[in-house]
Simulated scan of single mutants.
Amino acid sequence: MPFANYKLPQDSLTSAQKEDLIHKTTELMVGFFGETVRPTTMVLVEEIKDGGYGRADEVFVMPDD
C-alpha cells in the first residue's frame, strides 16, 4: 500500500486544493506501481499550526496578507 504524508502550514491550502493534491498524488502512485494500487493508496494531508515548525533554529509563521 503506497502512503504519502504531506505536512503543510495550517490554512495554506483550500479544501479544493487538498482534494486536488490527493487526486494527483494517487495518480502519481498509480503511474509508478500500476492501477492495482489505486484502492489502497493512502494520502494524508496534515496541517501544522502556525509557528509549529521550523528549520535551522528558525520558527516559521505564515505572513499576514
Rank of each mutant, 00 (worst) to 15 (best):
27 E>D: 15
14 T>I: 01
13 L>D: 01
24 K>P: 00
2 P>N: 04
54 G>L: 05
61 V>R: 15
24 K>C: 10
41 T>N: 01
52 G>A: 02
46 E>P: 00
24 K>S: 14
14 T>W: 06
48 I>Y: 04
24 K>N: 14
53 Y>R: 10
44 L>V: 10
11 D>Y: 07
28 L>H: 03
4 A>Y: 06
41 T>F: 03
32 F>N: 02
55 R>M: 14
56 A>Y: 00
29 M>K: 02
16 A>R: 04
49 K>F: 01
52 G>E: 08
8 L>P: 04
8 L>N: 01
59 V>L: 14
8 L>Q: 01
24 K>A: 15
25 T>P: 00
40 T>Q: 11
2 P>M: 08
64 D>P: 07
24 K>Q: 14
30 V>Y: 07
57 D>N: 15
5 N>S: 08
14 T>R: 08
38 R>Y: 02
2 P>E: 09
5 N>F: 06
65 D>Q: 13
18 K>Y: 08
42 M>N: 07
6 Y>S: 07
12 S>T: 04
5 N>A: 11
11 D>N: 14
41 T>L: 03
50 D>R: 06
42 M>I: 11
33 F>M: 08
50 D>H: 04
43 V>Q: 04
54 G>E: 07
52 G>N: 07
30 V>H: 06
49 K>S: 12
19 E>H: 07
44 L>D: 03
17 Q>T: 07
40 T>D: 13
59 V>S: 09
40 T>P: 00
61 V>M: 09
65 D>H: 13
56 A>R: 10
31 G>E: 03
20 D>V: 02
27 E>A: 13
60 F>G: 12
41 T>V: 11
60 F>K: 11
4 A>D: 01
10 Q>W: 03
65 D>I: 10
36 T>Y: 05
42 M>L: 08
17 Q>I: 04
10 Q>D: 09
3 F>E: 07
60 F>E: 09
3 F>M: 15
42 M>T: 04
28 L>G: 04
63 P>W: 10
50 D>V: 01
27 E>L: 14
24 K>V: 06
38 R>T: 02
47 E>I: 03
44 L>F: 13
12 S>C: 12
27 E>F: 02
44 L>I: 10
36 T>D: 15
35 E>Q: 11
15 S>V: 11
9 P>W: 12
55 R>Q: 11
11 D>R: 13
35 E>Y: 01
52 G>K: 03
61 V>F: 14
27 E>S: 11
3 F>T: 06
17 Q>E: 15
21 L>V: 11
8 L>H: 00
21 L>R: 08
16 A>H: 04
33 F>C: 10
4 A>V: 12
4 A>F: 08
8 L>A: 03
36 T>P: 03
22 I>D: 04
2 P>I: 08
1 M>E: 10
27 E>V: 01
38 R>I: 01
37 V>I: 05
17 Q>R: 12
14 T>H: 05
28 L>D: 00
29 M>W: 08
48 I>F: 05
64 D>A: 14
27 E>R: 06
21 L>P: 10
51 G>P: 02
55 R>T: 07
12 S>W: 09
20 D>K: 12
1 M>Q: 05
32 F>M: 12
41 T>D: 06
21 L>M: 15
25 T>E: 05
14 T>E: 05
8 L>R: 00
16 A>I: 02
14 T>V: 03
26 T>A: 09
2 P>K: 09
19 E>P: 00
